[in-house]
Amino acid sequence: MQKVTCTAPVNIAVIKYWGKRNEELILPINSSLSVTLHQDQLKTTTTIAASRDFTEDRIWLNGKEDNINHPRLQSCLREIRRLARKRRSSGGEDGVSRILSDKVHICSVNNFPTAAGLASSAAGYACLVYTLAKLYGVEGELSEIARQGSGSACRSMYGGFVQWLMGEREDGKDSLAQQVEAETHWPELRILILVASAEKKHVGSTAGMQTSVETSPLLKFRAESLVPGRMVEMIDAIRKKDFEAFGQLTMKDSNQFHATCLDTFPPIFYLNQVSQRIISLVHRYNAHYGKTKVAYSFDAGPNAVIFTLEPTVSEFVEVVKHCFPSESNGDTFIKGLTVSPSPLSSELTSAISGDIFPGGVNYVIVTQPGPGPAESQDPALDLLGPDGLPKSTA
């Protein structure tokens, strides 16, 4: 049995992708841009084993066996194996050649809520493709294959700040992810994820996008007339480390994405009451200081992603605690990077005063930009045991 374990990151789009022009190849109607989050806080871990003793391909996700025949999963498996065979045909007999006809067992876990709008499919498919590539010795451009699993997965193939070029070709060969800047480019940038709900969303991204493409005139206008300019502006703001420009554009693009969801018929509601209160709180906080110190972004779910700079983290975390007091029984409200206490001034407390919503935010994950996928060298992290079955159920 040959076995490989890898990890891959979550990414959060600041210029959103919503809508496909080709469902099968997952080709988007507009380009997008994201920030890769650090794997110390959010990641998918995947172990893949190949053995001639396995009778069929199998997959386990977060402790439960899942359907290996899912079309997108099969597409990734097929493409990596095709590239491995192509590589074998130009070389000699090696370890890869011996396992190409073997069945595989795949085991994958997320250390964050799945299908709650935290880009779990992006990290999951990026990790699947990267681990398969390591197992079969496939090198080179992998974002095109990851894209065929989940569109935003192509952006999780790189660290730092990443753009996904929509491309023009019908075969999708030019619809690829590119790193704009490495994770070390903006060391002061911090990301706070305010988990308002860990529940599975009511309308999945794939179904939601399809309905939006079919029914929303605003989506078409956004993709064709607004996003191209916003991509240029966002890359410029990132390269200049201009948080005012970065933050405002991030919020405007998030608002517009959710406006297209409302413009969809029937409308799609990913934001909830807590999400709306967080948006209001961010604007009150920024108004108090007369500048953009924090910025929100919401994907297809109610959980807020807050971008800010390191000096602001402690105070804004206290603001969140004040407005959304925790109802947890001793559970850690702040997870991830260490945050020092920061007393709030009476002026700020007055400025942010509004409805107090106990328990509205379950917990906060504090993180920063991070690197792309990596192979693990620690056997203790393997998810499959010596028999090729998940360790937890073996």
Rank of each mutant, 00 (worst) to 15 (best):
V4A: 10
N11G: 09
I15L: 15
Y17W: 12
N22M: 04
L25S: 06
I26P: 00
I29Q: 06
S31I: 07
S31T: 08
D40T: 14
T44F: 00
T45M: 09
R52K: 10
D57Q: 08
W60Y: 12
K64H: 04
K64T: 08
E65P: 07
S75W: 01
K86Y: 03
S90K: 14
G95T: 03
I99C: 12
F112M: 04
P113M: 12
T114S: 08
A115H: 13
A115D: 15
L118R: 04
A119W: 03
A126Y: 02
V129S: 00
T131R: 12
L132K: 01
V138R: 11
E144I: 05
I145M: 07
A153K: 08
G160Q: 02
G160I: 05
L165K: 11
M166F: 04
G172I: 00
S175K: 04
L176I: 09
A177M: 07
T184M: 08
H185E: 09
R190C: 14
I191L: 13
V195F: 02
V203H: 00
Q210R: 15
S216Q: 02
E224R: 15
V227A: 08
M231T: 14
E233N: 10
T260P: 08
C261K: 08
D263M: 14
D263I: 12
S275T: 04
V282R: 01
Y289N: 14
K291M: 13
D299I: 00
F307K: 05
T308C: 15
E315H: 11
E315I: 11
F316H: 01
P325V: 02
G330W: 14
F333I: 10
L344C: 10
L348F: 06
T349L: 11
I352N: 10
D355T: 11
D355C: 08
G359T: 08
T367N: 05
P369V: 07
E375W: 00
S376L: 13
S376G: 08
Q377Y: 04
L381G: 01
D382L: 03
L383Y: 02
L384Y: 02
L389Q: 15
L389A: 15
K391W: 06
S392M: 08
T393F: 09
